[in-house]
Amino acid sequence: MAQHARAFSYSLGQLWRARAATLMTAAVIGIALALPTALYLVLEHAQQVSAGWKGGAQVTLLLKQEVSDEAARTLAIRLRAWPALTEVRAISRAEALEEFRRLSGFGAALDALDENPLPAVLVLQLTAGQEDAERLLAKVRALPEVELAEFDEQWLKRLHAIMAVIERAVQLLALLLAAAVLFIVGNTLRLAVQSRSDEIEVSKLIGASDAFIRRPFLYSGMWHGALGGVCAWVMVSLALWLLHGPVQRLAALYQSDFSLSGLGFTLTLWLVAAGAVLGLLGAWLSVGRHLANIEPA
């Protein structure tokens, strides 16, 4: 225990004596940690924004076969009066057939039919920021003229798919950069071990165990990593602060109350802890190997 305390304070002292080099290393680790953190924050905010977008979606109403174009237009006029809807577009049966013919390439097949098989369609544009879109959907489904009502969610689904891809990419990047932190710390400590080879040699001569010699280096790795975490926090916070103004203005233009949230206590703790753990691991992977090379001669 006393030996741990000694190695602990000794490693701190070493860092302080080489503070310029320590800061450099911590800054590089900081960049490696800040990148995935920043991307993670971007994703978080994107999810937050897109969650509020459902209200701005479209609903497509397929009317029953027996509903005439005339009746469809009347229904459209009735629906326009609803405050939850900004626009209602009626597509007559003939227009629907024309569009289908143009888009599907089944023109000849349709010509073989005596009767137009397509119903009239109404496209509803929901008011942006509409909270209870699901309730509205239930309400239009209950209308006697309506056969089928669905959110036109294609674009939202695409957006979510894209975000899932980006999320995976961020995870991969985080993994790569974690490996980079291991290498940075490992290399830093390789140099530290080399520069103190005299001390290590003498310690071995005098009967220091490998664990005893390794300990201050492990602490040093942990300190470097934790400091790197702090650096990452500073960088991300600075970026958030710089983005704050422009984002507010953008949000105001969209009449949104969206704003950037900071890193928060938990995330900060995670960042520093992740740095410390990676630093410790990097030290552990590197130091043992390089210590073995230094034998008293």
Partner: peptide, 20 residues
Amino acid sequence: GLPKLRRSIGMVFQNHKLLH
């Protein structure tokens, strides 16, 4: 077992091997 053995031996070297 090496460290334990070496701790039972005091060693003096021609070039002292002090930490400067």
